[in-house]
Structures are given as C-alpha cells and as structure tokens.
Amino acid sequence: MFEATRPAHAPVDHPKVKMGKVGILLANLGTPDDYSYWPMRRYLNEFLSDQRVIDYPKWKWQPLLQLIILTKRPFSSGAAYKSIWNHEKGESPLLTITKDQTVKMAAAMQERYGDQVMVDYCMRYGNPSTKSKVREMVEAGCDKILFFPLYPHYAGATSATANDEFFRALMDEAWQPASRTVAPYFDRPEYIEALAQSIERAYEGLEKRPDILVCSYHGMPKRYLMQGDPYHCQCAKTTRLLRERLGWDETEIMSTFQSKFGPEEWLQPYTVEHVAELAKQGKKNIAICAPAFSADCIETLEEINEEIKESFEHAGGEVFTYIPCLNDDDAHIAALGAVVESNLKGWLD
C-alpha cells in the first residue's frame, strides 16, 4: 500500500513518491547525549538559548550564558545526570522511558489502525531532533502528521516551543504534509484516572497513610502567568480534578512549583521551601507526585527525590514517598491513545 508510486495522472517520467500514511510523532523535552562536559554544554546551550524558555533580550542574556553559565553549569548538571543515568543503556531515563512509551503506543495504534500509521518520537532539545523525525516520516510516506507534545498542560516554554520546532521542520519540506498539533490533555478523564490509579497503588503499598500529597509542578516566572500563559490555572485544575476523583478533603492534597531559575519571582509556593515548612508544621510523612511530567527525568529523579527530599528531612521530616510519573504505565498509554484517536478523526476513523 505504501510502496513508492507515480501520482495519479502524472506523466511516466514523474518521480515515484510514497504517500498515504499518517505519522504520529510524540515529542518530549530532550536529553543530553552524555553527562560529560561537552555534551552537557551543547544540550544546555540549546535549551537555555530558547527564548520561549529564557525571554531576556539576546544582547543581555547570551554573554551571561556563554561566558559564565555554560562554563560552570555543565559540571553541576552533569553530576546530577550521572546520579540518575541509565548506565546499562548509556542514556538518560527520559530517553529510556520515551522509547518504551513509543513502543507501547505503536503497538496500540497498530492494533487500532493497522499499517495506516507510523509512530515515532523526537526531542525538542538534543537527539533525536524534531527535524530529523519529520524528514523520516515524510520519506516513509506520511502525508499527514499528528504532532503530540507529551505535556499534559500548556506552557509557552514546553508545548509552544515544541510546536515551534515542528513548524520550523515543516518549513524545510518541499511537499509539506498536512499537520495537526495536540492540545493539552490535563483535564481529560482518562488522564486523571491514570493519575488517580497510580496514587492509589502507591498509598496501598505504604505502612502509614501520608499526612498530605504534594503535587509538584514545574515552575515558571510569575510574569508569564500575568502575560496570559494558562499553565498555572491548568495545574490548579489538575489538582482539583485529582482530589475529586480520589474523594479526598482539601487538606489532603496541594499544589507547589519547583525548578526555580534566576532572580525573579516564580509561581509559588516553591516545592523545595514548602516541604520544609510542612515538616516544621508537624507533617512528618508526605508523599509527592509530579503530574506535569509524562516521564521521569532529571527534575523528578534528581530534584524531587534527592534535593527536595533532603530539604524535607533536614527540616525534621521523617517519611518522604515519591510517586513515579505515569511513564509507560498501561493506563497512561491508554489515556494518550484516547487523545490520539480523538485527534485523528477525519483522517482516520
């Protein structure tokens, strides 16, 4: 069905082309190729040069980035990555998990649509690049591509920059495929259900019920919220929907924000500070999850489970339970599959 052929009514000397497939391209944030200095520097340079992430004027930001930050930060970030690295496979956990998610999604889509679809993944920063995967899909005969940033919530620094990179990749294609991007799915019942099930399983395995569940979301400057970014509101709704599904009281769950960077005010409360405050208030047993991340990564495995945990214990906390991201959990893949199916309507029904 997808062998290269001449288009209908084309002259006999027209080059043969492949067409007729629908590409499903999953996209995540990215990963360095290694935790040593130069791979870390390349990765951080690409990430921190993105003006969706750091929107300061280039003339002001780039000298600071190139001359100061990128001479020091690759060492500290590299050490953090080394502490969580998948040494057996020679890659970051984010890459391992994204590969596993893609395999399961491909199997689910194959069962649903047969050979009409092609499923792959790309990274906004690092490898495999968005551009390279768009090129592969077009060469494989995908004349339609559904681009799926794996962020439950919209933010300019995540969903928007991933879409930007996808659109830039399309600019290089002589024959652009028809394209769609997937909207945030933070309030879809399937996603909330998958989150709730993961928390219920974790709680069932604990000797004592935690005093509170902290939903730690990746932070961003408060200024972005005031400029109209909906991320903060979508995070708040996720926590509310999760609480309602679990049937909990408002005192049993809360939202915080992590990963503050730079001098300006970010969304609050800050996770690293607030868990210490919880310990001082007598909440010595807490659980923490990260609903904004579709896969465990440096921000969850190192920042939450090491730095934030240390802050809690240093303040007198006793039991700290990190509940992993949904990763390639079957309920998560089913939820993502439902999102894909709804976005393919009109292309594949």
Rank of each mutant, 00 (worst) to 15 (best):
V138D: 04
G141L: 04
P149N: 07
M118Q: 11
G126E: 02
G141R: 00
A140K: 08
N127G: 11
G114P: 10
K144W: 03
K131D: 14
Y125N: 06
Y121W: 14
V138Q: 09
C122A: 15
D120C: 12
A140D: 13
V134K: 03
E136R: 15
T130K: 00
Y125L: 07
A140P: 10
A140N: 08
G126D: 04
N127S: 15
L150W: 03
D115W: 03
V117S: 01
T130C: 13
F147C: 04
V138G: 00
V117T: 13
Y121T: 08
E136F: 13
A140L: 09
M137V: 12
P128L: 10
R124P: 10
V117W: 00
Y121R: 13
Y121S: 12
D120I: 07
E136N: 14
Q116E: 15
E139P: 01
V119F: 03
G141D: 08
S129P: 12
C122W: 04
L146S: 01
Y151N: 03
V138N: 02
L146H: 04
L146W: 03
M137W: 04
E139C: 09
S129I: 07
C142S: 02
D115E: 14
G126S: 07
V117L: 08
Y125A: 06
E139K: 14
V119S: 01
K144M: 09
G126H: 02
K131M: 14
V119A: 05
C122T: 12
F148I: 07
D143V: 08
T130Y: 04
E139I: 07
G141S: 04
K131P: 00
V117A: 00
K131N: 12
K131Q: 15
K131L: 13
E139V: 06
M118L: 15
C122I: 07
P149Y: 04
V119I: 09
L146D: 01
Q116I: 02
Y125C: 02
I145N: 05
E139Y: 10
K133N: 12
L150T: 07
S129R: 13
G141C: 05
K144N: 15
T130P: 13
C122Y: 10
G114A: 04
P152K: 08
R135K: 15
Y151L: 11
G126Y: 01
F148T: 03
V138A: 12
F148H: 02
Y121F: 15
V117F: 01
K144I: 10
N127P: 09
D115H: 12
C142N: 03
K133T: 11
K144F: 09
K144R: 15
F147T: 05
M123Q: 03
E139Q: 14
Y151H: 11
P149H: 05
Y113L: 00
E139L: 12
Y121H: 15
V117G: 01
G126A: 09
L146M: 12
I145A: 00
A140R: 08
K131W: 08
M123A: 07
Y121G: 06
R135L: 11
V119M: 05
C122S: 13
